[in-house]
Amino acid sequence: MRVPLRQLAHARSGDKGNRSNLAIFVYDPTHYPVLREQLTAERLKEEFGGVLLGDIKRYELPNLHGLNFVMDRALEGGVNESLNLDGHGKSWSAMILALDVEIPDGE
C-alpha cells in the first residue's frame, strides 16, 4: 500500500547560505526502516533534481527515528540572492511530505 509520507512523518527545513537541510522523523518508530530504505538521497535528486542542483548527503538518526538531508546549491543562491519568494526554502519540508512510500497493507 502506498501512502504519502505526511501520514507517517513530520519534517522541518532550514537554510545556511545556498545549502538547505531537511530533517524528517517518523511518528511511529516501527516506520523508521520504511523511511530509511525508501527516502534516499538518490530519490530526492530524482524527484526534485530541477531545483536541488548540488550534492545531497543523508545522515541517519536512529535515536530520534529520523533522517537529515543536506542539499547543496538548493536555494537559488540563498536568501539574500534568490528571487524566490521563499528564499529560505522553508517550504521544502512540506514538499517532501507529499512523496509517497510503500508500507505493508493494513498498517
Partner: peptide, 16 residues
C-alpha cells in the same frame, strides 16, 4: 519530543 526533534536538527548539517 516531536517539537524538540524538529528544532534539534533545524539548520544543522552533520549532526555529529
Amino acid at each position: 519530543q516531536r517539537t524538540v526533534k524538529e528544532q534539534l536538527l533545524y539548520e544543522v548539517h552533520d549532526p555529529a
